[in-house]
Amino acid sequence: MMKTFAPLLHSYWYLFRGAGMTLLMAAASVVPATLLGGALALVHVFGRRTARSALQVYLFVVRGIPLLVLLTFVYYLLPLTGIDLPPFWGVVVVMSLYYAAFMSEVFRAGIESLPQAQWDAARSLGMQRHLLLRIIIFPQALRLAAPPFVSLCANLVKATSLVSIVGLWELTMASREVVERTLAPFQIFLGAALIYFCICYTMALYGRFLERRSLVGH
């Protein structure tokens, strides 16, 4: 048993470093994606018709094209445009723009699922839009949106594996390198899968915890 997994035991530290890069990439993408997603959700719910139509087009395109396609083409296009951006940040930009779309839908669902009655009650007490959104609507909407949001973050972590196809280094690329060296694909990729599992399953458990908690107050 130990002999078959020897290659993994020799290289796990390299894989951990890959995982570190994976997490770095994911973290760097999550922040802009969340901010942009929140802004887009506000546009979707409160914006004017032209802004909303533009947003619909953006959402349609982003949700209909594979992330890999976008990553690949940005990777090839970027040098041609003359923008001097390190590939890491190019990837971060693409993934942020991609996941912002999904996050905006999650936030929008959170806002829209609040009963009209909450708006009525707050307005009846004399609250105006900004106050009402800030202390009544957004706190509740965020609580509702938190579990699917965590799920999206886990998807983002898994999606970082795609950058290995365009040649960027993270956990999947690291495991490919080790496999080429050790010719033990089964063990090494299984080890990488285990690392991804630990990260994503933890997030899934946190998401379930949030889901149970959000039901208590409602």
Binding site: A154, K158, A159, S161, L162, S164, I165, T172, S175, R176, V179, L183, A184, P185, F186, F189, L190, A192, A193, Y196, F197, I199, C200, Y201, A204
Partner: peptide, 22 residues
Amino acid sequence: QAVRNTPLLIQLYIIYFGFAMA
């Protein structure tokens, strides 16, 4: 849980290279 928390790409590599090596 296993397939939901691991990337498709890794599963793909496990199957493709794993079977080949076996």
